[in-house]
């Protein structure tokens, strides 16, 4: 692949800065995300990674900078210059967002099948039988028994809820998925199952994704490229295995050296 034949970036962040009062949550962040690429954002609590993710996903408005997205059919758009309605339509039809807490990403009062079907209806599906069929198919893909289709997620375990949230996000075939600590707060065995699932889906569906995590093991397993954040700034970036095996910055070296061996 020569430089000339490479596609254009799917998402470009330019000088993203966000303050909360006098405190800078993220400062002057720049990157390009290429199609099929999974970018990890790592750093400790309070480093600004979730704020950055929310700015990228259009959930928070940055104080400065722009987020440029290459849409499926309408050219490039600046996410924060779109009307609220256009942005909502875009995020529903082309994007997914997996929250750390599945309760925030699911509708807890309706059935598992409805949680998945709702996303399909948002992108224009109207045939009830087909929607139900897709919902059942996706439950199977995230390893939830088909007989739970009509149960509400309130009756699901934490790991099942997270898998349901993943199904709800991926059923509509998004081009870009944002994930905020998708395995945070889950038991390690449940975590391994979700990581395995995400890894397979990302690979098979050729997804592009931005993943926030404080877990460097998760980052190694799921991402191609890493940005390390400290105090709101990106202090190091590069290939995931290179950043983790040959960290350059003092803070990254400290993070990598702090992993407990098993």
């Amino acid at each position: 692949m020569s430089a000339a034949t490479l596609p254009s970036p799917l998402l470009s962040a330019r000088n993203i800065t966000k303050r909360f009062g006098g405190r800078i949550a993220c400062h002057n962040v720049n990157f390009d995300l290429w199609p099929g690429e999974v970018l990890g954002i790592v750093g400790e609590s309070g480093s600004g990674k979730t704020t950055l993710l929310n700015c990228l996903a259009g959930r928070l408005t940055p104080d400065a900078g722009s987020v440029i997205y290459e849409t499926a059919s309408a050219g490039t758009v600046d996410i924060h210059r779109l009307s609220e309605a256009r942005r909502r339509l875009l995020t529903r039809t082309e994007w997914g967002f997996v929250n750390q807490d599945a309760r925030e990403g699911l509708r807890m009062g309706v059935s598992a099948g409805a949680n998945i079907g709702e996303r399909l209806m948002a992108v224009g599906a109207r045939h009830y039988g087909e929607i139900r069929g897709s919902a059942a198919d996706w439950l199977a893909r995230v390893e939830i028994d088909a007989d739970r289709l009509d149960d509400r997620p309130t009756t699901f375990s934490g790991g099942m809820r997270q898998r349901l949230q993943i199904a709800r996000n991926l059923v509509s075939g998004p081009r870009l998925v944002f994930m905020d600590e998708p395995t945070g707060g889950l038991d390690v065995s449940v975590q391994a199952r979700i990581l395995d699932l995400l890894r397979g889906l990302v690979e098979r569906l050729h997804l592009s994704a931005v993943l926030v995590t404080h877990d460097l093991g998760v980052a190694r397993l799921l991402t191609h490229r890493l940005m390390v954040m400290q105090g709101g700034a990106v202090i190091e970036e590069g290939l995931t295995d290179q950043v983790l095996d040959d960290p350059q910055h003092a803070y990254t070296q400290m993070l990598v050296a702090s992993i407990l061996p098993v």
Partner: peptide, 24 residues
């Protein structure tokens, strides 16, 4: 990074001393 990944994908393989085990 994507240039290095492309070279690894198509041209250059690496056998390390230890397998990095992937759960499940």
């Amino acid at each position: 990074p994507r240039t290095v990944l492309d070279v690894r994908h198509r041209t250059m393989g690496f056998v390390s001393q230890f397998l990095r085990v992937i759960p499940r």
